[in-house]
Computed example of a mutant assay.
Amino acid sequence: MLLSAIPNCNKSLISPALNQKKGNQEVESQWAKPRQELKLLQRLAPPIFAAFVALSPIIAPPVSYGQAIDVQRGASLFNRACIGCHVAGGNIIQPGATLFLKDLQRNGVDTEEEIYRITYYGKGRMPGFGEMCTPRGQCTFGARLQEDEIRLLSEFVKSQADQGWLNIGNGGD
């Protein structure tokens, strides 16, 4: 009754034990909702993360590490043996014989096997780079390439032609 007569009186000064019990309930009720949300998040996190991993193109690389190494080696071989005439897939000697897909198709050289054959034995003004290249006048005077190197080179040229020679860069040197 006395408390009701004094409007600004703090009840905590009069009954600290009662107020402490009430305060603990308020604190617990403040944390109840976040705890429920945390439990829900803990239950949903694994399936959400699994779906993200399965659907994300960033996490699933397009090629294996071994394939990336082969592409890099192919680019390095290209930069060493071919770039003198075929800068970025073009052809500074014979403009109609570029390494762009449309020219390769027009010239009947649009498969890895055909690219391999021409790289090994040569054709027209293009010298052959194979170890067993003949006739002598058709073959390069420079260093010869081994069969596996020519295979990597033909795979690289075909993949770049399919992509429009966008990724030539410095790849491997």
Rank of each mutant, 00 (worst) to 15 (best):
I150T: 03
K158V: 12
T140K: 03
K123N: 12
E113M: 03
V53P: 13
Y65T: 14
K39H: 04
Q67R: 11
P57I: 06
I6G: 12
Y116Q: 01
I92S: 06
L77G: 00
Q72M: 11
P62N: 06
K102M: 12
P34Q: 13
N24L: 14
N24A: 14
R144E: 04
L13C: 03
Q163Y: 12
A75E: 14
D103V: 08
I48P: 02
I115V: 01
K11E: 10
G122W: 05
A51L: 09
D103P: 01
E112I: 01
S12R: 05
C85W: 05
V157Q: 02
P61V: 02
P47I: 15
Y120T: 12
N170K: 07
E37P: 02
A68M: 03
C82A: 05
L38M: 06
G122N: 13
R151W: 11
L3Q: 11
C85R: 08
Q67F: 10
M1I: 04
L99P: 01
F141E: 13
C139H: 00
G108S: 05
C85S: 15
A81L: 06
L104G: 00
V87E: 12
F129N: 05
P34S: 02
A54H: 09
F156T: 09
N107V: 10
G172P: 07
L3D: 12
P61K: 12
P47C: 03
N170R: 12
Q67E: 07
C9A: 14
P61M: 08
I115Y: 00
L152I: 03
N107G: 08
N79Y: 11
D103I: 07
Q94M: 09
S64N: 02
R80W: 05
L77Y: 00
L55F: 06
P47E: 07
R106K: 10
L153E: 04
A88Y: 07
N19E: 13
L99Q: 01
A32F: 02
Q30E: 12
L40E: 06
K102F: 13
Y121K: 15
N79C: 08
G142H: 05
A88C: 08
Q42R: 03
A143L: 06
M126P: 00
N10W: 06
L99Y: 05
N167F: 09
V63H: 08
N170S: 12
G89S: 08
Q36S: 06
V63K: 02
S12E: 12
R136N: 11
L2K: 11
C133A: 14
L38F: 08
E28W: 07
N19V: 04
R125S: 14
I168D: 08
R117C: 11
G96W: 09
T134Q: 10
I93G: 04
A97P: 00
Q138A: 14
L99I: 10
V63G: 01
R73C: 10
G89L: 15
V109D: 01
F52N: 15
L41G: 03
E155N: 09
T98C: 04
I92A: 11
L38K: 06
K22E: 11
G89F: 03
A88K: 09
V71H: 02
G122H: 07
T98L: 09
K22W: 15
G142I: 02
N10C: 04
